[in-house]
Design a protein around this nucleic acid. Structure first.
Length: 212
DNA sequence: TGCCAGGCCGGGT
DNA sequence: ACCCGGCATGGC
């Protein structure tokens, strides 16, 4: 039974319980965090977001106005700060221009066309786009990240070199399309990955999924 | 101490 | 269509 994706979900949920993702106070904060966490430890992202909050800057109007170099210095703890400041600016520009900062207008669009628009923003790739769709806009889209791929491949659900779309299709075809499920499942996979499925530990004797 | 973290882009084959 | 170097800080 655990050798199915829904069985694995049940096992993970039993082991770890709800993860309460995404840790943020607003959809905008989710979007900012989604870019800041690109190839970056979440702890560092928290430091950067804390600095933005201290300056009361987590509002689209303010973020859209501040100079990029100032934004870069504020998000410094998250690493790649010059690159990320540019990517954030591209996102803010998109939100401001296309939707005048209106979350309602954004959410009205269907997931597919929204995904395409997000992917057209420089600095937003498939994982960042899907994180925004799922965790900021509550669209039923499964997020694939490095942990998810590593876990799936180590348990022989996909090849090690499988593409993003291949991994995503696996979930899409084997699970009900459900925002709450996709939210919790991906969060649980990250939790598992951080604790038991590290890059430099190819075999893990105590993985909660070991006997699937 | 060196390795790694909730990716993505641009240039080269 | 892949493959690779670059981007950078902070924790263990």
């Amino acid at each position: 039974m655990s050798r199915s994706l829904s069985g694995i979900y049940k096992r993970l949920y039993s082991a770890f319980g709800p993860q309460y993702w995404w840790p943020a106070d607003s959809p905008l904060e989710v979007m900012v965090g989604a870019i800041l966490t690109q190839n970056t430890n979440w702890q560092n992202v928290e430091k950067a977001i804390k600095r933005l909050k201290e300056e009361k800057l987590l509002k689209l109007g303010r973020l859209h106005k501040i100079p990029q170099h100032r934004l870069a210095s504020l998000i410094r703890p998250s690493g790649y700060y010059n690159i990320k400041a540019g990517r954030l600016k591209a996102l803010f520009n998109f939100l401001h221009k296309e939707y005048k900062g209106s979350l309602k207008k954004l959410k009205r669009k269907d997931a597919q066309s929204l995904r395409n628009s997000l992917l057209a923003v420089k600095g937003i790739g498939p994982e960042t786009a899907d994180s925004i769709l799922l965790y900021a806009l509550n669209k039923p889209v499964f997020v694939i990240d490095a942990y998810t791929k590593r876990i799936l491949s180590r348990h022989h659900f996909i090849q090690r070199q499988a593409t993003y779309d291949e991994a995503q299709n696996l979930f899409r075809k084997n699970l009900q399309s459900n925002v709450k499920l996709f939210n919790e499942y991906h969060a649980l996979l990250v939790k598992l990955g951080k604790e038991f499925c590290l890059k430099n530990k190819p075999r893990c004797a105590i993985c909660p999924l070991r006997n699937i």
